[in-house]
Amino acid sequence: MNGDFSAVFFVLAIVAALVSLKVRDLLAAAALLSLFSFVVALLYVSLGAVDVGFNEAVLGAGVTGILLVIAIFNTCRRSQDRQHRGSRGSALGRLVAMLGLVGVGAVLLWAMAGLPDFGDPVAPAARHLSDRMIEGAYHDAHTPNIVTVMIADYRSFDTLGEGIVVFTAGLACFLLLRSERRRDEDGPGT
């Protein structure tokens, strides 16, 4: 089941991403990005990472979409890519960039061939700590959801850092945008 559906999800996600790059109406692009996030969430769920899929569905498909829409309402609804087409560089530059992209993609694909298979029990990442965490999670904290034990107990220091990063992002928005507003209210002379 996983194989069939994840192929469909991959195709949908790639199509949504490409169309969102091409479309002129930025509101449509925001909706397509929400679709992309939702398909990626389904992909996570089909890989067994339900917690990550949940997060991606709420944050990626829901909240980020709203934030993008708000940003569009405050700026401009139409994409203005066309006006900058002349400044994109010469044909030679574009050819070099294209070759570089293809080269990097080929190197990445080549490196991917050396990675272990999905769910490989003898993969290096699954050999050292994973066993101990999977076996000890219920015994240590009486919590059936291993992911919760992982992020809030074994790796809680990482999670504390993540929380501080999220809050810092909110503070940065607060400081940047609110101070801007106050300067506007002072009048055009300042």
């Binding site: 709203i66 934030l67 708000i70 940003a71 309402f73 405050n74 992002a169 909110g170 928005c173 607060f174 940047l176 945008l177 609110r178 801007e180 507003r181």
Partner: peptide, 8 residues
């Protein structure tokens, strides 16, 4: 973040 963006 939403309030800051929509107030801006």
């Amino acid at each position: 973040i939403y309030d800051d963006l929509s107030n801006f």
